[in-house]
């Protein structure tokens, strides 16, 4: 059993090198397929990063009427912070709002002058709210509405001037839909390409084994059992997979380095190169395992035809 195993591996390794050109073809085709698999990983990572980044930019501002007391605003802030959906709440006082306004319009002399004409600070205080997930803004906005209405019933007067969620809503929705469909479309394209190269891989290996069908029949006539005929082909397939995987992993190194900057500008936050380095372990496993699975799997199915055919009664 152990000697059989040793012999099968040795024969497989020998065949790999003796069938040099066939091995080269199989490895190249596998490289393309594994490259597709790797691109799939990078693509979904980039898309995910873009989505998180855009969701991070989404927030809701609550503007208060100028007469609202700081205590009332801070009590709303405390209530908001106690909500499970809320990630953070930042308070901007009236004075700070004025400062920001001045800073923003420091070159706009007319606006500043108009501001000077006024007796009082025209800007109200504001709360900036970030939710943990984009879909939660709706319920936060509703919470504030209810609270505002409750306050007016208690005749304490409505202190909320406006909530800008309803203006942002359309933009937020559209953005997440665009990202969603871009992701789906991109995934679909990569999956189709991966499938095509999978078929090509399978066919190449089948052709490679087709050239060995005479050999397989001789092996069987000499009295080799299935396992012994198939073994070396599986070993060869394994080697094709591993070699192709290593080539792909090496190729990704300069490629992500080169594309990293461009992709960073396009998708936002993610740099493919640093992503590759940071997730090398995972990507390594995905590529190597897909390579082995493809190589060994295609060999298994391709040899099976020539082994079982002759055993069937006609």
């Amino acid at each position: 059993m152990l000697t059989d195993f040793k012999r099968i591996i040795r024969t497989g390794v020998f065949n790999f090198f003796r069938n040099g050109f066939v091995s080269l073809a199989s490895v190249l085709v596998l490289v393309i397929t594994l490259f597709m698999v790797g691109s799939l990983v990078f693509f979904s990572a980039a898309m995910e990063a873009a989505l998180t980044q855009i969701s991070g930019k989404v927030d809701v501002n609550v503007y208060f009427v100028t007469g609202a007391s700081e205590d009332a605003i801070l009590s709303i802030k405390r209530d908001l912070e106690s909500l499970p959906e809320v990630a953070s709440v930042t308070y901007t006082s009236r004075e700070e709002a004025l400062e920001t306004f001045r800073a923003r319009h420091e070159n706009d002399f007319q606006t500043l002058q108009a501001l000077e004409e006024l007796d009082d600070n025209p800007l109200g205080a504001a709360l900036n709210i970030k939710a943990k997930e984009a879909s939660q803004y709706e319920s936060i906005a509703r919470f504030l509405e209810n609270r505002n209405n409750a306050a007016s019933v208690a005749s304490a007067g409505q202190i909320i001037d406006k909530i800008n969620y309803y203006q942002n809503k359309v933009v937020i929705d559209r953005l997440s839909r665009i990202i969603d469909s871009a992701e789906t479309l991109g995934l679909a394209i990569v999956i189709v390409l991966a499938f095509i190269s999978l078929v090509i891989t399978f066919n190449t290996i089948r052709l490679a084994i087709y050239t060995s069908r005479e050999e397989i029949s001789v092996m069987r006539l000499v009295g080799a059992d299935k396992r012994y005929v198939r073994g070396p082909f599986l070993v060869e397939g394994f080697m094709h997979g591993v070699v192709a995987a290593v080539i792909v992993l090496v190729l990704f190194y300069p490629l992500t380095y080169w594309l990293g900057g461009a992709a960073e500008r396009f998708f936002g936050s993610v740099n493919l190169y640093s992503y590759y380095l940071a997730h090398f372990g995972q990507i390594f496993l995905i590529i190597i395992l897909s390579g082995i699975l493809l190589g060994v799997g295609s060999s298994y199915f391709a040899v099976r035809r020539y082994i079982t055919k002759k055993y069937l009664k006609t």
Partner: peptide, 24 residues
């Protein structure tokens, strides 16, 4: 049975007109 055929074939030595050696 199919799995016993290899063992049976080993009891017979075969020589063909076209030799049928393993080329590699």
């Amino acid at each position: 049975h199919a799995r016993d055929i290899p063992a049976y074939r080993r009891r017979i030595g075969v020589v063909f007109q076209d030799f049928r050696l393993l080329p590699h």
